[in-house]
Design a binder for these strands. Structure first.
Lengths: 112, 112
DNA sequence: TGACATACCTAGCAACACGAGGTAACATCT
DNA sequence: AGATGTTACCTCGTGTTGCTAGGTATGTCA
């Protein structure tokens, strides 16, 4: 997958997932990759810096929870601000993909 | 419009338009803005560097043509390589937006 | 013990959209 | 003639951000 297209979408996806339920970082990566059948192949280097940016911006907040048996995990939740932003980002994606499709779905040159 | 989402899409759009017909730079800007009802608001700083990258990569080729009455215009055409890439980029967008929608169209948390 | 998965993290690089600026020709209005 | 606006080309610098490549540490299983 073209990594440049991923730009700006990372944040949108994270906010969408956290709007479903609280998740920890590693889980977000697995979810994204599984749900997209590895069309998206996120690595830690993509996610963690973005999570920290979002936390720094007061959009999400992390809290450590003991795992059932495994290691401690840092769960992230949307703040009030985050819920609003999740909605905006989702709308932004809708508008963007709609505009893109307006352009991309035009008929091509006739190859007589 | 979130400019980060534009990343990687610029090239895709240019190739799509040039696959319809030869256009000059200024015309491409106008076309993109008009067709998307200014949802995309391209400026020269977005387009020209990208055109030059594509030309340098042998994907498009520019030729000066005298305008009917106005200034000379540099029309760009897809090369053979460019036509192939236009197809790849279009497919890439389809795959990307499909994966995105898989993620984005899931139901959100029940707000009981 | 070794190997692997889980789970967190960071530093540095590369790509690229955009703002802001510049040049020049032509049209229109006063 | 002069001023203004549009067309049409260009470039430099900045900021953002995804990714590669590395690191740490715990738990599991053979």
């Amino acid at each position: 997958m073209n990594s440049e297209l991923m730009r700006g979408a990372t944040e949108t996806i994270i906010l969408k997932l956290l709007n479903e339920r609280a998740m920890y970082g590693y889980e977000i990566i697995k979810q994204v990759n599984e749900r997209t059948d590895n069309a998206f192949a996120w690595k830690e280097g993509t996610l963690y810096p973005c999570l920290h940016r979002l936390e720094g911006a007061g959009v999400i907040s992390g809290e450590w929870r003991d795992g059932d048996a495994g290691k401690a995990r840092k769960y992230y939740l949307l703040t009030h601000k985050g819920r609003a932003l999740a909605g905006e980002k989702a709308a932004e994606w809708t508008a963007f993909s709609s505009a893109m499709n307006t352009l991309m779905l035009q008929p091509d040159q006739a190859t007589a």
